[in-house]
């Protein structure tokens, strides 16, 4: 990605932001399979992790932040932004730390840890906002949910990253 000039990179980041935003909005419109707060597939994280692998940590953070703030305009409320930020920030930190240490075929592992971080962040924010420490008992269920959804979105990000790299390789010729 080093040879990508600034304009191309900016356009690509804008495209990924739009993509992540629309995926997030559409997923929010689909009735949840399990109507439990916090249990969600989180398809938007496919784009965040892909951006991190293809562009870099900082760029992925910008895209994620832009999606959260724009998402609040489209579908959210002020209190929802707080939870998105808590989950997103922790998830980003975890994935940024781990991404360099795993080979491509194990990218889904990074995503699982990211999802665990996301749910932990949201749970901590919920405990802080409601002042109810016993919500921590909800943790094991959120852990199981994060592992399943994180593996799924991680596989998505792995294939998307591979597809993008193949496309870039071809367009260079």
């Amino acid at each position: 990605m080093n040879e990508m000039n600034k304009t191309r990179k900016l356009v690509f980041m804008a495209l990924l932001t739009a993509l992540e935003l629309i995926v997030w909005v559409i997923e929010g419109q689909i009735p949840a399979l399990i109507p439990v707060p916090g249990v969600k597939l989180g398809l938007a994280s496919v784009i965040t992790l892909t951006a991190m692998a293809v562009l870099g940590r900082k760029e992925a953070g910008c895209i994620l932040l832009a999606r959260i703030l724009l998402g609040a305009l489209f579908a959210g409320s002020v209190s929802a932004v707080l939870f998105s930020l808590a989950g997103g920030a922790l998830s980003w930190c975890v994935m940024a730390l781990l991404l360099g240490h795993f080979e491509r075929k194990l990218m889904w592992v990074v995503s699982v840890f990211g999802a665990i971080g996301h749910n932990a962040g949201q749970l901590l924010a919920a405990i802080a906002v409601t002042g109810t420490p016993s919500l921590v008992w909800y943790g094991p269920a959120l852990l199981a949910s994060a592992i399943v959804t994180g593996a799924f979105t991680g596989l998505g990000a792995m294939y998307l990253t591979g597809a993008l790299e193949r496309y870039r390789g071809r367009s260079k010729e």
């Binding site: 094991p140 852990l143 592992i147 399943v148």
Partner: peptide, 15 residues
Amino acid sequence: FGALAALGAGAYLLH
């Protein structure tokens, strides 16, 4: 991860 998910789900069902 399979073991962790099973533990989490189990703890949630037992609690």
